[in-house]
Simulated scan of single mutants.
Amino acid sequence: MDPNWDDLRVFLAVARLESLSGAGKQLKMDPATVGRRVQRLEEALDASLFAKSPQGYALTAEGERLLTRVEQAEQAVTLGAEETRGQAGQLSGTVRLGAPDGCANYILPQVCARICEENPGLEVQILSLPRVVNLSRREADMAIVVSPPDAGRLTVQKITDYKLHLAASRKYLKMHGPIESLSELRNHKTVGYIPDMVFDQKLDYSAAMGVEDVQFASNSVAVQVNFLRHGAGIGMAHDFVLPAVRNIQRILPDQLSLQRSFYLVRHADDRRVERLNRFSAALIDGIRAEVLRLEEAVET
C-alpha cells in the first residue's frame, strides 16, 4: 500500500512539533487520530518513523530520511502554487513571522500593516516568544533575531542596526534629580530583563549599566517600557520605542550608547518560494525605513 499525501502531512506535523497533541492542534485533529495516521504510514512503508521518548516523538533514522524527501515534495508543491499566484502580481496567503518582543511591539505592526495594504490577500501572523523561534520545527516561516545562528540549514540576512540608551520618565527624574554620571546609577532602582530568562546575551544590558541587581524585571520589553513610563526606575530603552512613549527621555546619551542589530533568518529550503522572497524583501525595506524614522524622531 502506497502512502497518501494526507498521511505524509500528518507525519510532517508530528516530526516538526514532536508530539501527537501538538500536531493535532495544528491539524485540528484528535491526537488519537494523529497516532493512527502515523501508524498507518509506518505500516505502508514497513518502517518505524518515530521513537517515543520523555521529550516526545523523536525521528528515527528512517524518519529523518523520509522527512527530507517529504519536505522537498512540500516545497515543490508550494513553489508551484506560488508561481501560479504570482501571475496576479500580489502576495497572498499567510506568513508567520517570529520576532523579539521589542521589534514585535514597536516596529512590525506598522511595517506589516503597510505591506498588507499593498497586498489585500496577504495575512501576517507575528509570533513573539521569550526565546528564539525554532524554524526547523516550522514554528514560523521566518524570524527576526539579534544574534545570527551559526547552525542549521538556515539563511541569514542582516536587516539593520539599532541603538539603545539609558532612559527614565520625566516624573522619575523630577523626583530624584538630574543624573550626571554612570556611577550614580547604583543609587537608583533599575529596570531590565529577568536575569535567568535572558535567552540571548546581547539582550543583557546590566554589565553595560554597571549594575548587578535589577529591581523591576520582565522578559518583555513592553513591560519594561511601562515600568519606566510609570517612574519605577532607570533602564535601557530602544531608541525606536521612545516616540511611542513621550514621557520617557534618554539619560547620559554621551556616556552610554549601545548598538545591536536585527537579522532575518529563513529556512534554506524556502529560497525558491517566490512569495516568501518578495515578502522578506518588503519586510527588510520596511524595517530599515521604520527604525531610521523612529530614531531620527528621537534625535530631533
Rank of each mutant, 00 (worst) to 15 (best):
237 A>T: 14
114 R>S: 14
70 V>N: 02
3 P>A: 10
44 A>S: 14
15 A>M: 10
162 Y>I: 11
23 A>H: 02
300 T>A: 10
225 V>I: 15
144 I>A: 07
205 Y>I: 02
22 G>I: 14
294 L>T: 13
216 F>P: 10
18 E>R: 12
4 N>W: 04
20 L>R: 03
292 L>H: 10
282 A>S: 13
243 P>H: 05
285 D>L: 02
234 I>L: 11
40 R>E: 14
69 R>F: 05
135 L>H: 02
115 I>Q: 04
1 M>S: 13
280 S>Y: 06
92 S>R: 11
279 F>Y: 12
184 E>P: 04
238 H>T: 03
146 V>K: 06
37 R>V: 00
129 L>Y: 08
85 R>D: 15
132 V>L: 07
102 G>R: 05
263 Y>P: 03
122 L>I: 13
52 K>S: 08
270 D>F: 01
236 M>C: 02
237 A>I: 15
266 R>P: 01
147 S>P: 03
279 F>G: 10
118 E>R: 09
210 G>T: 00
116 C>D: 02
52 K>Y: 07
158 K>C: 10
47 A>R: 15
132 V>H: 07
93 G>M: 04
43 E>G: 01
240 F>S: 09
128 S>T: 08
49 L>S: 03
111 V>F: 03
187 N>Q: 13
81 A>L: 10
292 L>D: 14
26 Q>F: 00
39 Q>I: 14
184 E>C: 06
187 N>W: 12
217 A>I: 13
65 R>N: 15
257 S>G: 09
219 N>Q: 10
142 M>H: 07
152 G>Y: 00
95 V>N: 06
249 Q>H: 09
139 E>I: 15
238 H>S: 09
237 A>Q: 13
192 G>F: 05
144 I>D: 07
256 L>K: 05
195 P>W: 13
80 G>W: 11
215 Q>I: 12
260 R>Y: 06
278 R>H: 12
72 Q>N: 13
51 A>P: 02
180 E>S: 14
131 R>H: 04
117 E>G: 00
222 A>L: 13
222 A>S: 11
75 Q>G: 02
